[in-house]
């Protein structure tokens, strides 16, 4: 794995900047209904913040920094969120991925679509982030093996 950077200043800046990037990524994901943004862009931003942590801090210890054994599972969870949201439509004899069938009480169809889009965007963001981190980790690992 990657070693921590020797300079404490670089480590501190990586840590602080990564958290700022993560907050901005959450904003991009959840504000994607009203401004340019969405799951793909937010997922890429989250992945980039984790790359920054990797460069600065070296191998991850906490589960929030997506160590290697977790990242692929998180990608699977993201894909699963998307698929399960789609299958809800099938259960009520409707089309696949029709969000009108989501079991959200007291809402009009349009608001159900609104929340359905939000849920699948979170799934997409998780999947994109985890898979980018997994690919990055694999490439880095092999370099360190030699």
């Amino acid at each position: 794995m990657i070693e921590p950077h020797p300079s404490p200043i670089v480590r501190l800046v990586c840590r602080v900047a990564a958290r700022v990037i993560q907050v901005f990524a959450l904003y991009v994901i959840f504000h994607g209904h009203y401004s340019p943004g969405g799951g793909f862009q937010g997922g890429a931003l989250l992945a980039s913040s984790i790359f920054l942590l990797r460069w600065g801090e070296g191998a991850p210890h906490k589960i929030w920094d997506l160590p290697q054994r977790v990242s692929f599972a998180v990608g699977a969870i993201g894909t699963l969120i998307f698929t399960v949201t789609g299958v809800f439509g099938l259960f009520s004899a409707d089309n696949f991925l029709n969000y009108s069938a989501l079991p959200l009480p007291g809402m009009s169809d349009a608001m159900r679509h609104y929340w359905g889009i939000l849920i699948i965007e979170i799934g997409v963001a998780l999947a994109v982030m985890a898979i980018l981190v997994a690919i990055f980790d694999q490439l880095m690992n092999l370099q360190a093996d030699d």
Binding site: G38, F40, A44, V128, I131, L132, I135, Q138, L139, L142
Partner: peptide, 20 residues
């Protein structure tokens, strides 16, 4: 194109790992 960009990144990753 938003989807195409992300798929492009993934394919480049797979290509590079094959190359390694």
């Amino acid at each position: 194109m938003l989807t195409a960009i992300v798929v492009g990144v993934a394919t480049v990753g797979v290509g590079l790992s094959l190359l390694i």
